Amino acid sequence: MFTRLKKHVSFRHVVQSLFAIIVMYIGITFVIFINQVAGNSLTKLSRPAGVEGFLPISALVGLKAWIATGNFDPIHPAGLVILLTAIIVSLFLKRSFCSWICPIGTLSEGLAKIGKVVFGRNYTITKGLDYFLRSLKYLILVFFVTIIFFGMSGADAAAFVQTPYNMVSDIQMLRFFQHLSVFGITVIGLLVLLSLLYENFWCRYLCPYGGLLGLVSLLSPFKVTRNQTTCIQCGRCTKSCPSQILVEQAERVWSPECTGCLNCVQQCPVKNTLTFTVSKRQRRSLSPRSIAIGLLVMWTLFIAIAKWTGHWETSMTMEMYRALFTR
């Protein structure tokens, strides 16, 4: 029974499930906290700092302000810590944040699996259109980076961090989803449908966060490596790749689209033909278990350091939240 369970549950799925549970806890706790702010609840729960992981634009502005002024964002410090941790992880373990941790990535993956059941398959987009669509997330990334890092001075970024708009951006995000307009429902519904039909549609074509981490991951020493001598060209690696990378044709997978999910490595029928290594000559490969442990240790360590140094919890008080909430 244990062997049968092991075949269906991978280390990656365990890590994904763990972070999905954490995100759900953060969401529920944040809703309760906002009810406290509004005076509709007598419970006393602290604001979960992890909610700032859903404020990537604020984190980018905070990063700009920190680089320019040396002052770490006091309003949404956890958002900046999460962004920096995701970048550091990508420097070492490719875009593993996307395939192992990101709740949107987990949701997108789940929708693709449902799509396979409902429609019998996931569809693919023609090569030319695929290249064009993939460029969209980089264009969105360039747009935000240009505006924030080149269009704003350090003083402007630091001032934005302290604006009432930024202070309650987490509340605005919650209100957006609680009171979706017809347009919002239509856009989200369309994205869900496309994710059912096309595997990882949002992550592959539209997520600027993934685009940033993909570019950073080019510097990662670890890459999927193929032993050309023992490869039998069965094509199972390419077929299993959610990013549609032609793994069977590559000696080393350099593509920024590689998320380090290791689907290809696990699907390869010939032992040690596909490995996640530092170089072609190195025999020792990182296993899924090693990556799972590494990711959990890194995230726990960086959050612990942030808490210890006072760079995790917001400086905003309940009184400040209530004053801004009424406005």
Rank of each mutant, 00 (worst) to 15 (best):
V61M: 14
Y209S: 12
T277N: 05
P288A: 05
A68M: 11
K127H: 13
I28F: 09
E109N: 11
I188E: 02
Y131G: 04
S217Y: 05
F11K: 09
L213K: 08
V270W: 00
T29C: 01
F97I: 03
S153Y: 11
H76Q: 12
H76T: 13
V9T: 01
S220Q: 08
K280M: 10
L129T: 07
K7Q: 13
N35F: 10
M167K: 15
I303D: 04
P103Q: 08
A155R: 13
G128P: 01
V265C: 01
F176T: 13
S287K: 11
C98A: 06
F19R: 09
T238M: 08
I57E: 08
V37Q: 10
T225A: 02
I104L: 12
V37N: 08
F160V: 15
S90Y: 06
K113F: 10
I101Q: 00
A86L: 04
G110R: 05
P164T: 03
G53R: 14
V81W: 07
I125V: 15
I26L: 10
N122V: 03
L206H: 06
L5K: 02
L213D: 03
Y25C: 14
I125F: 04
W202A: 04
P256K: 09
G39A: 10
P48R: 15
F160E: 15
L18V: 15
G115K: 15
L206N: 04
L215P: 00
L18Q: 12
L193I: 07
R121C: 03
L296G: 02
K137A: 07
F2I: 11
S290M: 13
A78W: 02
I88G: 07
L213H: 07
W202H: 03
D130I: 07
K271H: 03
I82N: 12
E109Q: 12
N263G: 00
